[in-house]
């Protein structure tokens, strides 16, 4: 249990000229449900594909469950991957997919897979192409879970699902977590879903990791400060400004607190996950654009 679920050092991936992921260094302990959030094109899919061993890094290194991804069959068997849009063979029946999974994986819990499909009310004779988006996602997850993986990677698993299917999918996922020792990394741009199911957060902006940590600790360690605008005063000591907004009189900051606020004149509020994520995303956007108007802050 001591080895990390995923550990990266200076990880980068380049497609032709563009860096899809750059200089990522983080360590995710095992046993967490990790939410990977960020705007489209921030590198979420790339990171997950690197972890699954479907891509090879262009720079740095990545270790998954202590080993290089897809290094050998044993490593592959420990990691399950649910790709975006539930990649399935449309012409192949559900039964066929299960047979394929059984054939391809040394460990295969056929009984559990069948039980889960029965629970979902899916006939195994149906073709995957005839399934609804929610059913496809469920089948894809069922296949990934039947491998009995120690780490499950999900790339935007619920992005294309309606609210009901999304709830059912996440419910199935969480019941798995409750049942056995499995770490999960799922990417999503829906913070509300992340808030429900995740206990660990990685914010990826502009192909870099902006912040990573346990959600409870992140929420405890970040605050919203509201105070009067004073010339020459950016923020209280021990506070790292993540995002700042100001009017002619007032100044509102989202800060990472490395210690208590000792200066007076600041109203301190706790922050919710959505605002925290938005604060980090906003910084990336501002950095990227480098608009003169954003440099108004001293």
């Amino acid at each position: 249990m001591s080895e990390a679920a995923i550990e990266t050092v200076g990880l980068g991936k380049r497609y032709q000229r563009r860096w899809a992921l750059e200089d990522c260094t983080f360590r995710i302990p095992r046993g967490h449900v990790v939410g990977l959030v960020g705007p489209n094109g921030a590198g979420k899919s790339t990171l997950l594909n690197l972890a699954a061993g479907l891509l090879a890094p262009s720079a740095g290194s990545i270790k998954v469950l202590g080993e290089q991804p897809a290094r050998d069959a044993a490593q592959l068997a420990r990691v399950g991957f649910v790709p975006q849009d539930a990649a399935l063979y449309g012409w192949l029946s559900i039964e066929g997919h299960l047979r394929l999974g059984e054939h391809c994986n040394p460990q295969w819990d056929a009984k559990a897979a069948h039980a889960r499909l029965a629970e979902l009310g899916l006939s195994t004779r149906q073709r995957a192409g005839k399934l609804s988006g929610g059913q496809r996602a469920q089948l894809s997850l069922t296949i990934a879970l039947a491998k009995c993986p120690e780490l499950l990677l999900l790339d935007e698993p619920v992005a294309s699902l309606d609210p009901l299917a999304r709830r059912e999918f996440l419910g199935l996922l969480m019941s798995t977590v409750a049942g056995r020792d499995v770490s999960i990394v799922l990417s999503s741009h829906l913070v509300s879903d992340i808030e429900r199911v995740c206990d660990y957060l990685i914010v990826l902006v502009d192909s870099r990791v902006r912040v990573a940590g346990e959600i409870e600790e992140l929420l405890a360690g970040h605050h919203r400060l509201i105070g009067l605008r004073q010339p020459g005063v950016a923020a209280p000591a021990n506070q790292t400004v993540i995002a700042a907004r100001e009017t002619d009189r007032q100044r509102m900051l989202v800060v990472r607190s490395d210690g208590p606020v000792v200066e007076t004149g600041w109203e301190i509020e706790s922050i919710n996950l959505e605002d925290l994520v938005l604060a980090y995303m906003g910084e990336g956007a501002a950095r990227q654009a480098q608009l003169p108007t954003t440099q108004a802050a001293p």
């Binding site: 449900v33 709830r167 059912e168 996440l170 419910g171 199935l172 996922l173 969480m174 019941s175 977590v177 409750a178 049942g179 429900r196 199911v197 995740c198 206990d199």
Partner: peptide, 12 residues
């Protein structure tokens, strides 16, 4: 716990 998380989709 399993019943709760399946129904309301939250972290166990």
């Amino acid at each position: 716990v399993r019943e709760v998380v399946t129904r309301i989709a939250i972290n166990p």
